[in-house]
Design a protein around this nucleic acid. Structure first.
Length: 296
DNA sequence: AAATAGTACAACCGCCACGGG
DNA sequence: ACCCGTGGCGGTTGTACTATT
Protein backbone atom coordinates (compact mmCIF):
# COMPACT_ATOMS: atom_id res chain seq x y z
CA UNK A 1 0.00 0.00 0.00
CA UNK A 2 1.23 3.43 -0.96
CA UNK A 3 4.28 1.77 -2.39
CA UNK A 4 4.41 4.23 -5.22
CA UNK A 5 4.38 7.14 -2.86
CA UNK A 6 6.80 5.78 -0.41
CA UNK A 7 9.21 4.46 -2.95
CA UNK A 8 9.98 7.66 -4.70
CA UNK A 9 11.38 10.90 -3.55
CA UNK A 10 9.52 14.00 -4.50
CA UNK A 11 11.20 15.86 -7.29
CA UNK A 12 11.70 19.53 -6.99
CA UNK A 13 9.25 19.93 -9.81
CA UNK A 14 6.64 18.20 -7.76
CA UNK A 15 7.33 20.33 -4.76
CA UNK A 16 6.18 23.41 -6.53
CA UNK A 17 4.21 24.01 -9.66
CA UNK A 18 4.87 26.86 -12.03
CA UNK A 19 6.65 28.86 -9.43
CA UNK A 20 3.69 28.73 -7.10
CA UNK A 21 3.64 26.95 -3.84
CA UNK A 22 1.45 24.23 -5.20
CA UNK A 23 2.27 20.58 -5.22
CA UNK A 24 1.58 18.30 -8.13
CA UNK A 25 1.92 14.63 -8.87
CA UNK A 26 1.10 11.67 -6.68
CA UNK A 27 -0.55 12.31 -3.36
CA UNK A 28 1.21 11.39 -0.16
CA UNK A 29 -0.35 9.63 2.80
CA UNK A 30 -0.15 12.85 4.76
CA UNK A 31 -2.03 14.76 2.12
CA UNK A 32 -4.69 12.09 1.92
CA UNK A 33 -5.04 12.25 5.66
CA UNK A 34 -5.43 16.00 5.63
CA UNK A 35 -8.07 15.83 2.94
CA UNK A 36 -10.04 12.99 4.49
CA UNK A 37 -9.98 14.58 7.92
CA UNK A 38 -11.07 17.92 6.63
CA UNK A 39 -13.94 16.54 4.59
CA UNK A 40 -15.04 14.34 7.46
CA UNK A 41 -15.26 17.38 9.66
CA UNK A 42 -16.54 20.00 7.25
CA UNK A 43 -17.96 18.20 4.28
CA UNK A 44 -17.00 18.55 0.64
CA UNK A 45 -17.43 21.36 -1.83
CA UNK A 46 -15.83 24.78 -2.24
CA UNK A 47 -12.71 22.97 -3.24
CA UNK A 48 -10.32 25.87 -3.54
CA UNK A 49 -11.22 27.13 -0.09
CA UNK A 50 -11.14 23.59 1.18
CA UNK A 51 -7.62 23.11 -0.13
CA UNK A 52 -6.44 26.25 1.63
CA UNK A 53 -8.23 25.60 4.89
CA UNK A 54 -7.08 22.01 5.02
CA UNK A 55 -3.52 23.15 4.64
CA UNK A 56 -3.08 21.38 1.36
CA UNK A 57 -0.74 22.86 -1.17
CA UNK A 58 -2.93 21.61 -3.95
CA UNK A 59 -5.40 23.14 -6.31
CA UNK A 60 -9.06 22.74 -5.52
CA UNK A 61 -9.41 20.72 -8.66
CA UNK A 62 -6.73 18.34 -7.57
CA UNK A 63 -8.39 17.88 -4.19
CA UNK A 64 -11.75 17.27 -5.75
CA UNK A 65 -10.34 14.71 -8.14
CA UNK A 66 -8.44 12.92 -5.42
CA UNK A 67 -11.52 12.74 -3.26
CA UNK A 68 -13.96 11.68 -5.95
CA UNK A 69 -11.74 9.15 -7.67
CA UNK A 70 -9.88 7.70 -4.77
CA UNK A 71 -10.61 8.68 -1.20
CA UNK A 72 -14.39 8.76 -1.21
CA UNK A 73 -15.60 5.97 1.07
CA UNK A 74 -17.86 4.37 -1.48
CA UNK A 75 -15.33 4.06 -4.24
CA UNK A 76 -15.04 0.53 -5.45
CA UNK A 77 -11.83 -0.90 -6.73
CA UNK A 78 -10.85 -4.06 -8.46
CA UNK A 79 -11.75 -5.67 -11.72
CA UNK A 80 -14.99 -4.90 -13.41
CA UNK A 81 -17.48 -7.69 -13.01
CA UNK A 82 -19.16 -9.14 -16.07
CA UNK A 83 -22.32 -7.34 -15.03
CA UNK A 84 -20.53 -4.04 -14.87
CA UNK A 85 -18.86 -4.64 -18.21
CA UNK A 86 -22.15 -5.43 -19.82
CA UNK A 87 -23.66 -2.32 -18.36
CA UNK A 88 -20.81 -0.19 -19.58
CA UNK A 89 -21.11 -1.56 -23.07
CA UNK A 90 -24.80 -0.99 -23.12
CA UNK A 91 -24.69 2.48 -21.70
CA UNK A 92 -21.79 3.54 -23.87
CA UNK A 93 -23.73 2.37 -26.86
CA UNK A 94 -26.52 4.61 -25.75
CA UNK A 95 -24.69 7.65 -24.50
CA UNK A 96 -21.24 7.48 -26.04
CA UNK A 97 -18.34 8.92 -24.09
CA UNK A 98 -20.50 10.46 -21.41
CA UNK A 99 -18.51 8.80 -18.69
CA UNK A 100 -19.95 10.61 -15.74
CA UNK A 101 -23.46 9.76 -16.84
CA UNK A 102 -22.51 6.14 -17.27
CA UNK A 103 -20.78 6.16 -13.90
CA UNK A 104 -23.96 7.31 -12.23
CA UNK A 105 -25.40 3.92 -12.96
CA UNK A 106 -22.47 1.93 -11.69
CA UNK A 107 -22.42 2.61 -7.97
CA UNK A 108 -18.93 2.99 -6.63
CA UNK A 109 -17.31 3.28 -10.02
CA UNK A 110 -15.92 6.59 -11.11
CA UNK A 111 -16.08 8.14 -14.53
CA UNK A 112 -12.32 8.01 -14.61
CA UNK A 113 -12.29 4.30 -13.98
CA UNK A 114 -14.88 3.60 -16.63
CA UNK A 115 -13.06 5.81 -19.06
CA UNK A 116 -9.83 3.95 -18.37
CA UNK A 117 -11.60 0.65 -18.77
CA UNK A 118 -12.93 1.69 -22.12
CA UNK A 119 -9.64 2.98 -23.40
CA UNK A 120 -7.49 0.14 -22.18
CA UNK A 121 -9.80 -2.76 -22.93
CA UNK A 122 -12.19 -1.81 -25.66
CA UNK A 123 -10.00 0.35 -27.78
CA UNK A 124 -7.18 -2.11 -27.43
CA UNK A 125 -9.33 -4.82 -28.95
CA UNK A 126 -10.39 -2.57 -31.77
CA UNK A 127 -6.77 -1.84 -32.44
CA UNK A 128 -5.82 -5.49 -32.40
CA UNK A 129 -8.57 -6.21 -34.87
CA UNK A 130 -7.42 -3.38 -37.07
CA UNK A 131 -10.80 -1.81 -37.09
CA UNK A 132 -12.14 1.48 -36.00
CA UNK A 133 -13.88 1.43 -32.67
CA UNK A 134 -16.86 3.11 -34.34
CA UNK A 135 -16.95 0.83 -37.34
CA UNK A 136 -19.90 -1.39 -38.04
CA UNK A 137 -17.61 -4.40 -38.01
CA UNK A 138 -16.49 -3.67 -34.51
CA UNK A 139 -20.01 -2.96 -33.36
CA UNK A 140 -21.06 -6.31 -34.75
CA UNK A 141 -18.26 -7.96 -32.88
CA UNK A 142 -19.49 -6.39 -29.70
CA UNK A 143 -23.07 -7.24 -30.37
CA UNK A 144 -22.76 -10.80 -31.53
CA UNK A 145 -19.67 -12.04 -29.74
CA UNK A 146 -18.69 -10.15 -26.66
CA UNK A 147 -21.99 -9.21 -25.19
CA UNK A 148 -23.39 -12.73 -25.49
CA UNK A 149 -20.20 -13.92 -23.93
CA UNK A 150 -20.65 -11.62 -21.01
CA UNK A 151 -24.21 -12.79 -20.63
CA UNK A 152 -22.98 -16.33 -20.63
CA UNK A 153 -20.49 -15.50 -17.92
CA UNK A 154 -23.13 -13.85 -15.83
CA UNK A 155 -25.33 -16.84 -16.23
CA UNK A 156 -22.56 -19.21 -15.29
CA UNK A 157 -21.65 -17.31 -12.18
CA UNK A 158 -25.24 -16.96 -11.03
CA UNK A 159 -27.56 -19.48 -12.62
CA UNK A 160 -30.70 -18.35 -10.81
CA UNK A 161 -32.38 -16.70 -13.71
CA UNK A 162 -35.64 -15.83 -12.12
CA UNK A 163 -34.54 -13.02 -9.92
CA UNK A 164 -36.70 -10.19 -11.10
CA UNK A 165 -35.62 -7.41 -8.83
CA UNK A 166 -32.95 -5.33 -10.39
CA UNK A 167 -32.72 -1.64 -9.91
CA UNK A 168 -30.03 0.66 -11.10
CA UNK A 169 -28.79 0.97 -7.60
CA UNK A 170 -28.62 -2.71 -6.91
CA UNK A 171 -27.46 -4.21 -10.10
CA UNK A 172 -23.78 -3.70 -9.64
CA UNK A 173 -23.23 -3.34 -5.96
CA UNK A 174 -21.53 -6.62 -5.45
CA UNK A 175 -18.17 -5.79 -4.03
CA UNK A 176 -16.53 -9.11 -3.58
CA UNK A 177 -13.50 -8.17 -5.54
CA UNK A 178 -11.66 -11.34 -4.85
CA UNK A 179 -14.39 -13.50 -6.25
CA UNK A 180 -15.45 -11.38 -9.15
CA UNK A 181 -14.62 -12.72 -12.54
CA UNK A 182 -11.18 -11.66 -13.44
CA UNK A 183 -10.97 -9.63 -16.55
CA UNK A 184 -7.41 -8.62 -16.17
CA UNK A 185 -5.70 -9.78 -19.27
CA UNK A 186 -2.41 -10.09 -17.57
CA UNK A 187 0.31 -7.70 -18.33
CA UNK A 188 0.95 -4.77 -16.18
CA UNK A 189 -1.23 -2.75 -13.94
CA UNK A 190 -1.72 -5.49 -11.45
CA UNK A 191 -0.12 -3.47 -8.73
CA UNK A 192 -2.26 -2.66 -5.79
CA UNK A 193 -3.50 0.88 -5.49
CA UNK A 194 -1.62 2.94 -3.00
CA UNK A 195 -4.67 3.55 -0.92
CA UNK A 196 -7.83 1.54 -0.93
CA UNK A 197 -11.12 3.09 -0.09
CA UNK A 198 -12.68 1.70 3.04
CA UNK A 199 -15.31 0.05 0.94
CA UNK A 200 -12.77 -1.87 -1.02
CA UNK A 201 -10.84 -2.52 2.10
CA UNK A 202 -13.82 -4.17 3.63
CA UNK A 203 -13.38 -6.90 1.13
CA UNK A 204 -9.66 -6.93 0.81
CA UNK A 205 -8.68 -6.98 4.40
CA UNK A 206 -6.39 -4.13 5.17
CA UNK A 207 -6.00 -0.47 4.65
CA UNK A 208 -4.76 2.56 6.33
CA UNK A 209 -7.42 4.48 4.42
CA UNK A 210 -10.15 2.56 6.16
CA UNK A 211 -8.72 3.37 9.52
CA UNK A 212 -8.10 6.89 8.37
CA UNK A 213 -11.66 7.34 7.31
CA UNK A 214 -13.20 5.70 10.30
CA UNK A 215 -11.05 7.65 12.65
CA UNK A 216 -11.95 10.89 10.96
CA UNK A 217 -15.61 10.01 10.99
CA UNK A 218 -15.56 9.12 14.64
CA UNK A 219 -13.75 12.25 15.60
CA UNK A 220 -16.21 14.35 13.67
CA UNK A 221 -19.23 12.55 14.97
CA UNK A 222 -20.32 11.71 11.48
CA UNK A 223 -22.13 8.49 10.65
CA UNK A 224 -20.08 5.48 9.67
CA UNK A 225 -19.24 4.87 6.05
CA UNK A 226 -21.83 3.05 4.03
CA UNK A 227 -21.85 -0.65 4.36
CA UNK A 228 -21.53 -2.82 1.36
CA UNK A 229 -24.09 -5.06 -0.10
CA UNK A 230 -23.24 -8.13 -2.02
CA UNK A 231 -26.33 -8.34 -4.10
CA UNK A 232 -25.49 -9.84 -7.41
CA UNK A 233 -26.99 -9.04 -10.72
CA UNK A 234 -29.45 -11.80 -11.43
CA UNK A 235 -28.16 -13.88 -14.20
CA UNK A 236 -30.50 -14.36 -17.07
CA UNK A 237 -28.35 -14.99 -19.99
CA UNK A 238 -30.95 -16.08 -22.46
CA UNK A 239 -29.13 -15.59 -25.66
CA UNK A 240 -31.99 -17.05 -27.63
CA UNK A 241 -34.17 -14.24 -26.46
CA UNK A 242 -32.10 -11.78 -28.34
CA UNK A 243 -33.98 -12.30 -31.56
CA UNK A 244 -37.25 -12.25 -29.75
CA UNK A 245 -36.65 -9.01 -27.96
CA UNK A 246 -34.18 -7.42 -30.31
CA UNK A 247 -32.21 -6.17 -27.40
CA UNK A 248 -29.76 -7.85 -25.09
CA UNK A 249 -30.89 -5.89 -22.15
CA UNK A 250 -34.34 -7.28 -22.41
CA UNK A 251 -33.05 -10.78 -22.29
CA UNK A 252 -32.17 -9.86 -18.74
CA UNK A 253 -35.47 -9.26 -16.98
CA UNK A 254 -33.86 -7.10 -14.36
CA UNK A 255 -31.99 -5.04 -16.85
CA UNK A 256 -35.21 -4.28 -18.63
CA UNK A 257 -36.43 -2.68 -15.44
CA UNK A 258 -33.17 -0.87 -15.21
CA UNK A 259 -33.60 0.63 -18.63
CA UNK A 260 -37.00 1.83 -17.70
CA UNK A 261 -35.21 3.70 -15.01
CA UNK A 262 -32.47 5.28 -17.06
CA UNK A 263 -34.58 5.98 -20.10
CA UNK A 264 -38.25 6.65 -20.59
CA UNK A 265 -40.27 3.82 -22.05
CA UNK A 266 -40.60 5.61 -25.36
CA UNK A 267 -36.90 6.26 -25.52
CA UNK A 268 -35.67 4.96 -28.82
CA UNK A 269 -32.50 3.06 -28.23
CA UNK A 270 -32.30 1.92 -31.78
CA UNK A 271 -32.63 -1.70 -30.85
CA UNK A 272 -29.51 -3.74 -31.06
CA UNK A 273 -27.68 -1.02 -32.88
CA UNK A 274 -27.19 0.78 -29.65
CA UNK A 275 -25.38 -2.11 -28.09
CA UNK A 276 -21.71 -2.45 -28.57
CA UNK A 277 -18.69 -2.68 -26.46
CA UNK A 278 -15.80 -4.90 -25.66
CA UNK A 279 -14.68 -8.11 -24.19
CA UNK A 280 -12.22 -8.58 -21.47
CA UNK A 281 -8.61 -9.18 -22.14
CA UNK A 282 -8.95 -12.59 -20.57
CA UNK A 283 -10.74 -13.63 -23.68
CA UNK A 284 -7.60 -13.33 -25.69
CA UNK A 285 -6.78 -16.82 -24.55
CA UNK A 286 -10.28 -18.08 -24.64
CA UNK A 287 -10.79 -20.85 -27.23
CA UNK A 288 -14.39 -19.87 -27.59
CA UNK A 289 -13.44 -16.33 -28.26
CA UNK A 290 -10.74 -17.27 -30.71
CA UNK A 291 -13.08 -19.57 -32.54
CA UNK A 292 -15.81 -17.03 -32.80
CA UNK A 293 -13.41 -14.36 -33.84
CA UNK A 294 -12.25 -16.53 -36.67
CA UNK A 295 -15.80 -17.05 -37.77
CA UNK A 296 -16.50 -13.37 -38.02
C1' DA B 1 19.78 -10.71 -15.57
C1' DA B 2 18.84 -6.95 -18.42
C1' DA B 3 16.25 -4.70 -21.93
C1' DT B 4 12.08 -3.92 -24.06
C1' DA B 5 7.15 -3.86 -24.76
C1' DG B 6 2.69 -3.75 -23.06
C1' DT B 7 -0.83 -2.62 -19.50
C1' DA B 8 -3.50 -0.22 -16.01
C1' DC B 9 -4.60 3.68 -13.69
C1' DA B 10 -3.75 8.06 -11.13
C1' DA B 11 -3.35 12.60 -12.18
C1' DC B 12 -3.31 16.61 -15.02
C1' DC B 13 -5.05 19.75 -18.66
C1' DG B 14 -8.16 22.47 -21.26
C1' DC B 15 -12.62 23.59 -22.09
C1' DC B 16 -17.26 24.72 -20.90
C1' DA B 17 -21.43 25.85 -18.11
C1' DC B 18 -23.25 28.14 -14.40
C1' DG B 19 -24.08 31.46 -10.79
C1' DG B 20 -22.98 35.62 -8.27
C1' DG B 21 -21.37 40.29 -8.19
C1' DA C 1 -23.81 42.53 -20.54
C1' DC C 2 -19.62 41.36 -18.66
C1' DC C 3 -16.21 39.35 -15.56
C1' DC C 4 -14.67 36.04 -12.39
C1' DG C 5 -14.63 32.04 -9.48
C1' DT C 6 -15.99 27.45 -9.24
C1' DG C 7 -17.21 22.88 -10.45
C1' DG C 8 -17.69 19.31 -13.78
C1' DC C 9 -16.45 16.79 -17.83
C1' DG C 10 -13.80 14.37 -21.43
C1' DG C 11 -9.24 13.82 -23.36
C1' DT C 12 -4.57 12.94 -22.57
C1' DT C 13 -0.23 11.97 -20.29
C1' DG C 14 3.06 9.97 -16.96
C1' DT C 15 4.63 6.20 -14.71
C1' DA C 16 4.66 2.01 -11.81
C1' DC C 17 4.34 -2.47 -12.72
C1' DT C 18 4.32 -7.04 -15.24
C1' DA C 19 5.31 -10.03 -19.09
C1' DT C 20 8.15 -11.23 -22.71
C1' DT C 21 12.36 -11.59 -25.29
Amino acid sequence: MMAQHEARELSSEEETAAGEDLRRGPWTVEEDLLLVNYIAAHGEGRWNALARCAGLKRTGKSCRLRWLNYLRPDVRRGNMTAEEQLLILELHGRWGNRWSKIAQHLPGRTDNEIKNYWRTRVQKHAKHLNCDVNSQQFKDLMRYLWMPRLLERIHRSSPSIDTPDLSAASCVTAVDVSSSSSVDGGGGGAHQPQLLSPLAVATEGSSNAAAMWQQAQMSSGAPPPPTTTTQQLPAAACQSQFDQFGCWSESLPGLAAFYDDVAPPDFDVGGVDSMWGAASCAEDDDPWYTQMLGAL
